[in-house]
Amino acid sequence: MTDEPATNISGGQSGGSRSRLFESGADAPTTPAEMVVDRLGERYWQKTYGGQDAFECLIRTILSQNTSDAASQPAHDALMDRYGDGGLATALANADHSVLAETISSAGLQNQKSKTIIRIATRVREEYGDTEAFDSFVRDGSYDDVRDALLDMKGVGPKTADCVLLFASGHDGVFPVDTHVHRIYRRLGIAPPDGDHEAVRAVLEETIPAAKCGFGHTASIQFGREYCTARKPACLDGPEACPLGDICDRVGVNPDSGEVVDPADAPTDTE
Results as ranks from 00 to 15, higher is better:
T2V: 14
T2R: 15
D3S: 15
T7E: 09
I9P: 13
S10E: 09
S14L: 11
G15S: 05
G15W: 03
F22M: 07
E23R: 11
E23A: 13
A26V: 08
D27N: 07
A28M: 04
R39G: 04
E42V: 13
E42P: 05
Y44I: 09
W45N: 13
T48W: 03
Y49L: 13
G51P: 06
A54Q: 04
A54D: 04
E56M: 07
E56V: 08
T61N: 00
T61K: 03
L63W: 06
S64M: 07
Q65N: 09
T67F: 02
Q73H: 07
Q73A: 11
H76K: 09
D77V: 11
A78D: 08
M80C: 10
D81A: 15
R82H: 02
G86A: 08
G87Q: 12
T90I: 11
T90G: 10
A95H: 01
H97P: 08
A101P: 06
E102C: 04
S106L: 05
G108V: 04
L109V: 11
T122K: 14
V124N: 06
E126N: 15
E127T: 12
Y128K: 10
G129H: 10
E132D: 15
A133L: 04
S136P: 08
F137E: 02
R139H: 12
D145S: 11
M153W: 15
K154W: 12
G155Y: 00
G155M: 05
G155F: 02
K159N: 02
K159D: 02
H171R: 11
G173R: 01
P176D: 09
Y185E: 01
L188Q: 01
I190G: 01
A191N: 05
P192M: 03
G195S: 11
G195E: 05
D196F: 02
T207P: 04
P209T: 07
A211N: 12
A211C: 10
C213N: 05
C213Q: 03
G216P: 07
H217N: 15
E226N: 13
C228Q: 02
T229S: 09
A230Y: 09
L236V: 00
L236H: 00
A241K: 03
A241M: 02
C242G: 01
P243R: 07
P243Y: 07
G245M: 08
G245S: 11
I247V: 08
D249A: 15
R250P: 10
V251I: 12
N254H: 14
S257D: 04
E259T: 12
V260W: 01
P263Y: 00
A264F: 00
T270H: 09
T270A: 12
E271T: 09
